[in-house]
């Protein structure tokens, strides 16, 4: 590997690192996601309260665009059609530095929330991008593990019985 190639790879890695840090870009906004019933937010089950806290704005409006997690090759979700699509396009009022809404997130993964902020005087106060992570329902993970274990056991029994059967045929 030449020196130029090596430096080029390092430059690409740094560029990717900085381009994939929307939370850093949105430091003046903090997104707090809570389950109204307590505990973690489970997709397609719990209605979460999303609270956006603005450090520099007390009153104004926030235009929000929520996009669902992008499709991943090895882990399809319960709603494949929803993956990588727009979910919400709405304008919320900012009151006392906060804007809130309730939403049931459909699938697990990293949601991208783009927020266009306008202050109380009607001036644009920047665009911010946040990432909201929703984890899979632990019950569904448990059920998936049980299901896969049953399939492995089924395969094991089938393989064991068939190979024993072949042995007997040869013996006769």
């Amino acid at each position: 590997m030449t020196k130029v190639t090596f430096l080029g790879i390092i430059a690409i890695i740094f560029a990717l690192m900085f381009s994939n840090s929307p939370v850093t870009a949105g430091e003046s906004i903090i997104a707090n996601v809570q389950n109204e019933q307590g505990g973690d937010v489970r997709p397609d089950l719990d209605t979460a309260e999303v609270e956006l806290m603005f450090a520099n704005i007390q009153n104004g409006t926030a235009h929000i665009f929520l996009r669902s997690p992008e499709r991943k090759f090895f882990s399809p979700t319960d709603f494949p059609i929803v993956e990588g699509t727009d979910l919400i396009d709405a304008t919320l009022p900012i009151e006392n530095g906060k804007a809130t809404f309730q939403y049931m997130f459909p699938i697990r993964g990293d949601y991208h929330l783009k927020v266009d902020v306008v202050d109380g005087e009607g001036k644009a106060a920047g665009t911010h991008e946040l990432v909201i992570t929703i984890n899979e329902n632990p019950e569904e993970v448990k059920n998936a593990v049980i299901f896969i274990a049953i399939l492995v056991a089924f395969g094991f029994v089938v393989g064991y019985v068939l190979s024993r059967g072949r042995k007997r045929v040869h013996a006769v």
């Binding site: 397609d44 709603f79 929803v82 919400i88 919320l92 809404f101 309730q102 459909p106």
Partner: peptide, 24 residues
């Protein structure tokens, strides 16, 4: 009867506009 979304907005004359996706 699951609550999918709830939010509020402000309007000077009663007009409104918003968009959401129904995933189910």
């Amino acid at each position: 009867k699951a609550e999918i979304m709830s939010m509020k907005s402000s309007s000077p004359d009663g007009s409104y506009k918003f968009a959401m996706q129904f995933f189910d």
